[in-house]
Design a protein around this nucleic acid. Structure first.
Length: 563
RNA sequence: UGUCCGAUGGUGUAACUGGCAACACGUUUGAUUUUGGUUCAAAAGAGUCCAGGUUCGAGCCCUGGUCGGACAACCA
């Protein structure tokens, strides 16, 4: 039992870390960070990064900081920092007392910039944004040097201080690193370090009118926090030479940047910009719309932190980018909720059933199991009566042989109750729609077993007219109709699924559900997993369907249809 | 006509210093079942982008291609 340790294969980041540990690099310490920009809500892709960074810290007895990369007051807002904190916490991670902001380091950053100037490695440039862009060249063509590139250190120092003092208009001057305008790497062609931006910052207010750029702020912040492994996504790979350059020139602690492939999920989009577009143009109700791949959306939909963490574990980490099948995410939720969610009976599309031979006015209580996967959850009583409702889908006038549910003249089991047989079908004379069914029940079959050992293939769920109440149920489907909405062209919104939400107002739930609270999750027997939505009030309880149950009948039926 | 990165069943990830390509999801089949759920058992499905080379032996190493992605904000 001792040496049976499961063969853990390391991902490439863990391999790097273990190699570093073997070499006693960084005094054998591991310190990571999760560095979101507070300019939007976190999504499942961030969850991957959070699980990675906090997970690695935990695995190697290290620490992981939460750091807001808030160097652009133009886009950032406290609303977002609050939601980010909530989401990280909800996912189950703890940054302890190490919550930082890049803006905490504005003074230090400023001084490092001055140091760079003194080293002759940075200069103030008067070129306009357009000119800079022209001077930069293209990936194929080298750029040319700015006419301001060779200002003296004294002049640069003076100018930079005056930039800070607010002597120049926005956009008229910029501090640039002096590297190499002919570098094959565009990021090395004298990148911007500081820009003038008269805008109040959500934390530093109006203290600054110059703000540092990402490339400068990020590596220095990592260094200040003694981050050993600075893990980020692939698009920053080209930035790494610059990351290293700043740290080398400044000669300060040098974290190692490691890039991995960001998460893509099928049938959705995963960039803050595009999600923001869906929110702002009202394609969804907000960042936490249950159809959104945001953490808050998934939470509202009914996802659990465990299922998301487990998902992150399963998908692994690598440098190749691809698209993960949502089915994998869904599987991890089903796996989790199957163990945890109590079962209840609800009818989404009710069809009235009258049990002709059941005594008028009589009711009786039956025992129902709360969770067959967990005996400690016990049982509850449900009430049976003469009039009940079943799912419209569970009755077919003309049914294929493999249809095990209710059909004329045939018997079916009502879960936990009785066998019933359909004796009559009543229809609306005008529309032909079935309005009610008449059935008879076998009093001997109470609890769902018949003493004569008669077998009934189908078991269906139901609620009694006596003891049920009206609920609203929202059914969700994938947000997009195609696996990769970005594959063909940029116009991803034309692949939006018009049927991604279906609202059912006339659903019936067993009365045990009367006192539920937002966020509670249940399995509606035979239907799926459902979560109480925050839109619920005393008048109207709203359930979101997180996920339907796996449905092998649907597969059979599809096959029949094809024949 | 640049630099960097990547390429393993349908999808994602493995294969420790070269040694019978494995796991999960998905798919299919069967068993069990008072949820057409769960569970259990089994099967199909790649010979590792291509071409050479090194080697007794290559998914792993070397060379050259091909294909895909990233990079030209005073965004992060």
């Amino acid at each position: 039992m001792d040496t049976k340790s499961e063969k853990t294969s390391l991902n490439f980041i863990q391999s790097i870390i273990e190699e570093d540990l073997r070499n006693n690099k960084n005094d054998s310490k591991v310190h990571t960070r999760f560095p979101p920009e507070p300019n939007g809500y976190l999504h499942i892709g961030h969850a991957k990064s959070i699980c990675l960074n906090f997970g690695i810290a935990k695995k190697y007895n290290g620490l992981c900081n939460l750091r807001f990369d808030d160097t652009n007051p133009n886009k950032e807002d406290v609303e977002y920092v609050d939601s980010i904190k909530e989401d990280v916490k909800w996912l189950g991670f703890d940054w302890g007392d190490r919550m930082y902001y890049a803006s905490d380091y504005f003074d230090k950053l400023y001084n490092y910039a001055i140091q760079l100037i003194k080293l002759g490695k940075a200069y103030v440039c008067d070129l306009s944004a357009e000119e800079i862009s022209q001077y930069r060249g293209t990936p194929q063509k080298p750029g040319k040097e700015s006419p301001y590139r060779n200002r003296s250190i004294e002049e640069n120092l003076d100018l930079f201080q005056r930039m800070r003092a607010g002597e120049f208009k926005d956009g008229t001057k910029i501090l640039r690193a002096k590297i190499d305008m002919s570098s094959p790497n565009m990021h090395m062609r004298d990148p911007a370090i500081y820009r003038i931006r008269r805008m109040s910052h959500h934390r530093t207010g109006d203290k600054w009118c110059i703000y540092p750029m990402y490339d400068f702020a990020h590596c220095v912040s990592d260094s200040i926090e003694n981050i050993t492994h600075s893990i980020c996504t692939l698009e920053f790979e080209v930035h790494r030479p610059l990351y290293d350059w700043f740290l080398n020139e400044l000669n300060i602690f040098h974290p190692q940047q490691i890039e991995f492939a960001r998460l893509n999920l099928s049938y959705t989009v995963m960039s803050k910009r595009k999600l923001m577009e869906l929110v702002e143009e009202n394609y969804v109700s907000g960042w936490d719309d249950p159809r959104m791949p945001t953490i808050s959306g998934l939470r509202r939909r009914g996802y659990t932190p465990e299922s998301i963490r487990n998902f992150a574990d399963t998908i692994g980490v690598a440098k190749r980018d691809g698209i993960i099948d949502v089915a994998l995410l869904e599987h991890s939720l089903r796996e989790d909720l199957n163990k945890k969610a109590n079962r209840v009976m609800c009818v989404l599309n009710p069809l009235k059933v009258i049990i002709d031979n059941y005594p008028e006015g009589q009711t009786e209580e039956l025992d129902a199991v709360n969770n067959p996967e967990d005996a400690s959850k016990g049982t509850r009583k449900i009430k049976f009566s003469k009039v009940i409702y079943i799912e419209r889908d569970d009755f077919r006038e003309e049914a294929p042989r493999k249809f095990f549910r209710l059909k004329p003249g045939k018997e079916v089991r009502l879960r936990y109750a009785y066998f019933i047989k359909c004796v009559d079908v009543v229809k609306d004379p005008n529309t032909g729609e079935i309005t009610e069914l008449h059935c008879t029940y076998d009093p001997e079959s109470k609890g769902g077993k018949s003493p004569d050992g008669r077998k009934v293939k189908g078991t269906i769920h139901w609620v009694s007219a006596e003891d049920s109440f009206n609920i609203e149920v929202r059914l969700y489907d994938r947000l997009f109709t195609v696996e990769n909405p970005l594959a063909q062209d940029k116009d991803f919104k034309k692949y939006l699924n018009k049927d991604s939400i279906k609202i059912l107002k006339n659903c019936l739930a067993e009365s045990s559900l009367k006192d539920v609270k937002a966020g509670e999750k249940f399995q509606f027997e035979r239907l799926g997993y459902f979560c109480v939505d925050k839109d619920s009030d005393n008048e109207n309880i709203v359930f979101n369907r997180a996920l339907p149950l796996r449905d092998s009948w649907a597969k059979i039926e599809n096959k029949i249809k094809k024949l």
